[in-house]
């Protein structure tokens, strides 16, 4: 297990380096940030001075080495717009996104997993088709559209729930539904197919031969096995949520890292964008590692080797 974690950590570092490289060079391709940072009437001297302080006059490769060196020490540069370290801006906003994720995951699982089990039990039946429709809708419906729809119905028309910004529990409802809906479908489909596979297995037959009740057979013997593939996708889902947060947070004016990403793009705040992408990658990698450890806990075949 320790070796497994160590290997994953090394892989993570390599991956991060690749992300940093891509981000850095892409950033340079999209134009010179100096123009954006200076007022329109800036003189050539002003420009030259700024270029020098930003180190943009060095050869590209040297810039990259400096960038990586600084990044390794935790310095991801200054946000142009916010006039504060980019990492600081990220970590200020991060908790706002993180508070949404568990609820969205919970909603996705609470609906998706039982729905998947029921769909598998009723394979080809009415319930299965209903669940299938839910799945297609959940995936096909763009979250900005769902978000706008929810705002229209529950905030504008009914006036039940606030449409934007953070606040009390009622502020969470619509963003969480918007984020979670995508996951309901995902969890449902994986649970369904995993259950169908597990239900065919011999050990399920043996459980029935023992005379166990159908409830025990399905919800204990089958589901526990079906959860293994479901869990592996947790990492992917959390990744989806963090990425998906861009749209949802923008729609709901939610001050999280999703909206921060959006702002960084809109204002061409490229140091901020770089920092956000790298830090998000670290976040997703960490979550994936956590999920793998959890996975090992559920599946003894992994834990004990």
């Amino acid at each position: 297990m320790k070796r497994f974690i160590a290997r994953r950590l090394i892989q993570g570092v390599v991956l991060l380096f690749m992300v940093a490289t891509i981000v850095f060079f892409l950033g340079r391709l999209t134009g010179n940030p100096v123009d954006l940072m200076l007022p329109e009437d800036a003189t050539a001297e002003d420009r030259a001075a700024l270029v020098k302080t930003l180190g943009l006059d060095e050869p590209l490769l040297d810039q990259f080495v400096i960038f990586v060196g600084k990044a390794a020490q935790g310095d991801l540069g200054q946000s142009i717009r916010m006039k504060q370290p980019a990492a600081e801006a990220f970590f200020n906003r991060l908790p706002n996104t993180l508070v949404l994720i568990p609820w969205a995951l919970l909603l996705g699982m609470a609906l998706g997993i039982p729905l998947g089990v029921l769909a598998a039990l009723n394979r080809g039946g009415l319930l299965d088709r209903f669940a299938g429709t839910v799945a297609v809708l959940g995936v096909a419906m763009p979250s900005f559209w769902l978000g706008v729809l929810l705002i229209f119905v529950f905030s504008v028309e009914l006036g039940w729930l606030p449409s934007s910004r953070m606040g009390g529990p009622e502020h969470y409802v619509l963003p969480v539904i918007t984020l979670g809906t995508f996951l309901v479908a995902g969890f449902m489909r994986i649970t369904r197919s995993a259950m169908l596979e597990v239900m065919e297995s011999e050990f399920v037959k043996l459980a029935r031969i023992k005379g166990l009740s159908e409830t025990t057979v399905i919800w204990k013997h089958c589901l526990r096995n079906a959860l293994i593939p479901v869990l592996t996708l947790w990492g992917v889902f959390v990744g989806n949520l963090i990425t998906g947060a861009i749209v949802t947070e923008t729609v709901f004016a939610w001050p999280g890292i999703g909206r921060l990403t959006y702002e960084a793009v809109i204002y061409r705040d490229y140091p901020l964008l770089q920092a956000v992408i790298i830090l998000k990658s670290i976040l997703i990698l960490t979550i994936n590692l956590g999920v793998d450890i959890l996975y090992a806990y559920v599946d003894p075949r992994i834990r004990l080797t």
Binding site: E202, F203, I209, G211, R224, N225, I228, D299, P300, R301
Partner: peptide
């Protein structure tokens, strides 16, 4: 289980892995 029981063919898959 009590009056009638059965042993299946494949021991590799007859026991629940988890």
């Amino acid at each position: 289980g009590r009056k009638i029981s059965m042993v299946l063919q494949d021991p590799q898959t007859s026991l629940n892995p988890v």
